[in-house]
Design a binder for these strands. Structure first.
Lengths: 208, 208
DNA sequence: ATTATATATAGACTATAGTCTAAGACTGCG
DNA sequence: CGCAGTCTTAGACTATAGTCTATATATAAT
C-alpha cells in the first residue's frame, strides 16, 4: 500500500466508520441508522465495524469520552479564588451546556442506556475518570483551604455530587421536552450543596 | 367456551403470558429469555403477546406498577406525628427495600432502560403517579404544619426529591455489585433534605 | 527469500424483537 | 337464526444487532 503499514490502515478504517456513523446519527438519529448502513456508506464491513467497536453504542461512547478534554480545559479556566460551591456550580453549568449543545441529547441517551446494559465493564466508573478526578480535586482543595471539614470523605462526596448530575441527566431523557436542563441541574445541585456545606462546611467559611 | 366470554378468555391468556414470563425472567434473567420462549411455554403466540403487551419490557413494567399498592399501604402506616424529614427518610427506606428485595435489580434495570427509550409516553410521569402524589402530599402537609415555608413549591420539590431516588437507582445499576442501595440512598437524601430544609424550612421547626 | 504468524476485513449466518395478515370465534342485531 | 362486525390469536415474515469463518495481507523469524 502506498501510505503505510497495516496498523495505520486499520486506524483509517476505524476513523472512516466513526465519522460516517456520527454523520448518519446526526442526520437521522441513532435508532434510525443500522450498522449495515454505516458499513455500506463507509465502504467497509461488519467484520471491520465489530473489530473496532464493541457495539453500535461504541461509536457514541467513544465520542462521549472526548468530554474529558473539555473538562480539563474548562476547569483550568475557572478562577482560583472562587469558593468550592461556586466552582462546583460552574462545573455543572459548563458540563450541562456541553452535553446539551455539543454532544446532544441522542448521544447522551445512548450512553445512559449502555450504562444500564454493560453491568460487567462498569461504564461510568471507567469512562468518567477525568470528571471524578476533578471533583475529588475540588473537594481536596476545599479541605486544604479550610472550606470543608477534614472528616469529609472526598471519595464518597464525589459519588454523591456526580450522582446529582446523573439524576438530572436521567430525568432530562425520561421526562419530555419541557425539561430545562440548565435550570433543573442548577436548582438540584444548589440545594444539595447547601446540605453538604451544612454538614461538612467549616463554620464561618460557608461558601459565599 | 365453557367458562366465559371472549373478554375473560383474553384476560386469562394475558395472565398466563404474564406469569410465565415472570417465572422465566426470575429463573434465567430478562436478557436470557426470548419472547418466543415465553409464548411457547404459555401455549400462546406472538400475536397474543403483542396484543397484550407493548413490548418485552411491558411484562416488567406491568409488574413494576404494583409498587403503587405498596406505597399507599406503606405510607398509611407511618405515624402521623413524625416530622416531614423523618417521613421522607422512611419513605426512601421502605421504597429501596421493596425495590431491592421484592421487585429485584433485573426488573428495575429494564424499567430504567425503558424510561430512556419511550420518549413519547413519558414513562415515569405516567407510571409513578402514586409516588408523586404521596410526596406532594407530604410537602403540602409540612407546609400546613408550618414545617416548610409557604413559598415552597410542592410540585417542583416533588421532582427534586424523587430525582434523588432516580439518581441513586441509576447508580445502583451503573456501578457494580459493591453498591449498597440502602446506605447510598440514605446518605444522598439526607444531605439533600438538609439543603431543602435550610432553604425552605421554617426556623425553629427544622426537622428534628 | 521463504515460511510462519498475527491481524484486518468481507460477508454469510444466527438470534431475536417486533410487525402484519388472515382466520377463527364471540357478540349483537335484524 | 344468520349475518356483520369486532376482538383475539396463530404464525409467517421483516429488520437488524451481533457472531463466526475464511481469506488476504502485512509483519516477523530463520
Amino acid at each position: 500500500m502506498v501510505n503505510g503499514n497495516r496498523q495505520s490502515q486499520a486506524e483509517q478504517t476505524k476513523q472512516r466508520l466513526f465519522e460516517t456513523a456520527l454523520e448518519l446519527f446526526k442526520e437521522k438519529g441513532f435508532d434510525q441508522v443500522s450498522v449495515d448502513e454505516i458499513v455500506q456508506k463507509s465502504n467497509s464491513s461488519k467484520g471491520a465495524f465489530y473489530g473496532h467497536f464493541k457495539s453500535k453504542y461504541g461509536i457514541f461512547i467513544e465520542k462521549f469520552k472526548e468530554i474529558d478534554h473539555f473538562y480539563e480545559e474548562y476547569v483550568g479556566q475557572i478562577p482560583e479564588d472562587r469558593s468550592f460551591k461556586e466552582k462546583v456550580l460552574l462545573l455543572f453549568e459548563g458540563q450541562m451546556n456541553y452535553l446539551e449543545h455539543v454532544l446532544g441529547k441522542d448521544l447522551m441517551r445512548t450512553v445512559y442506556i449502555s450504562g444500564l446494559n454493560e453491568t460487567d465493564e462498569n461504564f461510568f466508573s471507567n469512562s468518567e475518570r477525568s470528571l471524578y478526578r476533578i471533583v475529588r480535586g475540588l473537594i481536596g482543595e476545599a479541605i486544604e483551604r479550610g472550606e470543608l471539614r477534614r472528616d469529609a470523605d472526598p471519595r464518597q462526596l464525589t459519588w454523591l455530587i456526580t450522582r446529582c448530575m446523573r439524576g438530572t441527566l436521567y430525568d432530562w431523557h425520561a421526562f419530555g421536552d419541557t425539561f430545562d436542563l440548565q435550570k433543573e441541574s442548577k436548582e438540584f445541585i444548589e440545594l444539595f450543596l447547601d446540605g453538604l456545606m451544612g454538614r461538612y462546611g467549616v463554620a464561618g467559611q460557608r461558601g459565599k
